[in-house]
Each structure stands twice: as C-alpha cells, then as structure tokens.
Design a protein around this nucleic acid. Sequence first.
RNA 1: CGGGGCAUGGUGUAACGGUAACAUUCACGAUUCGGGUUCGUGAGACUCCGGGUUCAAAUCCCGGCGUCCCGACCA
Length: 416
Amino acid sequence: MRQSQLFTKTRREAPKEEVSTNAKLLIRAGYINKEMAGVYSFLPLGLRVRDKIAGIIREEMNSVGGVELEMTALQNQELYEKTGRWSDDVVDNWFKTKLKSGTELGLGFTHEEMITEMLKNHISSYKDLPVYAYQIQTKFRNEERAKSGLMRGREFLMKDLYSFNDNQESLDDFYDQMKGAYERIFERVGLGDLTYITYASGGTFSKYSHEYQTLSEAGEDTIYVSEEKKLAINKEVLTEETLSELGVKKEDLVEKKAIEVGNIFKLGTKFSSALGLIYTDEQGEKQPVVMGSYGIGLGRLMGTVAEVLSDDKGLIWPKSIAPFTLHIVSLGIKDSEAYKVAEELYKHCGEKGLEVFFDDRDIAAGEKFADADLLGMPYRVVVSDKTLKEGKFELKERKSGEVKMVNLSELLAIVK
RNA sequence: CGGGGCAUGGUGUAACGGUAACAUUCACGAUUCGGGUUCGUGAGACUCCGGGUUCAAAUCCCGGCGUCCCGACCA
C-alpha cells in the first residue's frame, strides 16, 4: 500500500485525556479512533493488525477442531431468564434495548445461552459430540469504568469458543488441548515470554479456571509468578491450599501486575441443564452436555502488544501481526531516481508476496523517519541518493534499531 | 458505584474577574531535501451545556454531560 493513499494522519501529541501507552500510541499512529470512553473504531492500519491476530487465532482454533460460526449481538430476554442472568442484579454490565413492540432485548456480553439453545437443534446423541464452535464477534459490556485504552472497553471484538463434550474426561482432554492452542497464540503474537498461565477462580464446576496473563505495569490484575514452573497464581486464589496443590512455595513467587489476555473455563453442565441441552448416551440414558468456554479479546490483545512491545518513539509490531512487514521510505521527490528505485522495489516486493508499505509522500525526511518509527513496521528500508551511490539499500530493524546496507536479495532474505 | 482530577481553534498548551494568545495542524507562495527544515501570507473558537454572582466571567459558585485516574466490580 502507498502511504499517500492512507487517509489517516499521525499526530505529534496524544489527546490529553489518554494516559495509557497503548491508547496514546495507537491514536497517535492513526490505528484507532476513540468514539467515546471504551469505544474505539479500528482504522485501516489497526484493522490490519486485528485481522492478523484474528487469522492466528482462527488457525489455532481450527487446529484443535474448532469450527467457526457467528452469532448475533441481539439476544432475547427469555433465554437469559432461564439461566437467571437477565437481572441487572446478577449481571451488572448489560446493555439492554427494546423492540418497537416493547419487547426487551440484550446486547450480548457473552454467548453461552445462545449457543447452547441453538445447539439443541443439532445435538441429540453421543454421536453428535463433541462440538467445538467458536466465533469472532462483537461483545457489549456496560462497564462501570472503561479504562486504559483498548484494555477494558464497552464494545469489543472477542473470540469465544464453546466446547460441548459427552463427559468430564473428554472435556478435560479438550481443555488441555486448548491450553496448547492458547500458548501458541500468545507465542505467535509476540507475547510468549511475558505471558503466564495463571490459576484463577473456577466457579461452580471446577476448582480453577485458567487465565493467560501478560506481565505489564498497565495490567489490572495482581498475580504471583513462579518463573521456575512458568505459571502464576491470581491473587484471588492465593491460599495455602492452592500453593500445596500446585507444588509451589510462597517464597518462590514474585508479585506482578498483569493483563488478562485470555481465559479458559470449564462450565460443566450449568448451561446445558438450565436450557435442556441433553444427549442420549450409548446406554440410551439422557445426559446433559458438558461444556467449556474459552475467550480472547482481540482488541485487548492488540493493545497489550502495543503496550509491552513499544518504545518512546512508537509501536514495534512483531512480523506476525504487523500491518505491513516492510516500510519502504523514499527520500527522493516524485520522478527522482531514488523515488523510481523505491517504486520498483515496492512493486518487486509486492510480486514476491511481501506486505509492503511505501512512503511515497513528498515530505521532509525527518518526518518520514518519525512516522516510520511511530507506525512500527518490523523493517524499514530507505532509498535515497546516498544509498543509490552505494548501490545498496539501507535496512533497519525497528525492534533492535540495527541498520545494514544490503542488496536486493539480501533484503528479501532478511525480511521474508 | 464511592473518591479525586481535567474541560479553551482539528491537536497540545497560555490568558490577575477587564479586547481569548502561542505552537502545531490546514491552505497558498517561496525555501529545503538523511531525523518532524526555514520564512512569508492566510484559515480556524458562541472558551462542554444550563443556571447563578458581578458593571464585567474562559476565570468565581451551583447543577449536569463528557473524560481520565484511584478504589470497588469484572465468564
């Protein structure tokens, strides 16, 4: 893509009301636009990042047998009455609205009820199980306090997978597979080193649920990390009992702030019993389906990467989720030799299947460099009279700042 | 939901109770061309909304909306 075609503009300064690093940088760089507290639009570059994240999540969900669908945001009251979750006293972050007829509706903050109800049309025998269905869909939560940019929003895209198994053992087995999938997701988006599986409160049907927590001062959660075991314990379940069960000593744990980037949860038969999602087993007995749910907030994940992988100059995207891999900066004005060479390079890289962003604008070099740093593509290549004289390209890695003079094939090999 | 802060051109900041200023941005013209170059000319504001005090309110007081932070909450 040519930068001259991108309508978003970078800013020198972040809006004063934004304090969090992720919001400041993403707004300054033109990745997102704030509509109101906790509600952000995704602009072209931001959308590309979010789509990349979605792609990684899809691959990993599919790899453990997930099948994608999409449910609606509008949800009906009756369904939630059956599980007791319609009342504002029980769920305090509902957005509710009404049909013209006066019938009340809810804007979905989650989809356990809806998918369970829907699957009654599709599951009746043990032969129909397991079912692993997921979606990447917009959730609405009327948070009393939205905060920290993309970290806690009122409208946000979430991947939610729901598992349906015939018994606890098969649920447990799938649950472990999901742990693997989640680890791979966080690894692939560049947060692997900072992300810990974290034991958290499990609710009615299981002792623990698991959160994936990424270390960051911007986090809302306090966790206790065991570096040795590569796990953490949420403050909310830090008890003697937990410690002995996990085989860790209190003194080996380090208290840290962290961002919850994902969570997985065994639901048991809470929803299937309440809504009547029943199957017939091999013996002809009726049994409630055993469920689990598994969430990742895409915006929050993107915000987390922006938060922990950036520096004072701007964003630093891992190649896997960068909007573009290579940022070509031409320092020549239109029709100059440098511009022509840069354009050739742009076309050539495009033909090679590289995702390239071409700064073809006729502005000062300093501004281009500042923008490139702010936008944070993994690699920047400069084409100028200086580099032409040497017959090479100047390649800079955003993360390390390392600069190399390379020829075309070297360039392609590194950036690939 | 408790507590606290902030609201002024698109953005960031000034302005003792007395004509709203500067930077940036934007437009035009030069200049420059490896780290937001330099200069000129212009454009852009019912100072968040509603009340009140005062001869006079961006400024003081009350209420509201918005927003940020701390806490509480958080499948």
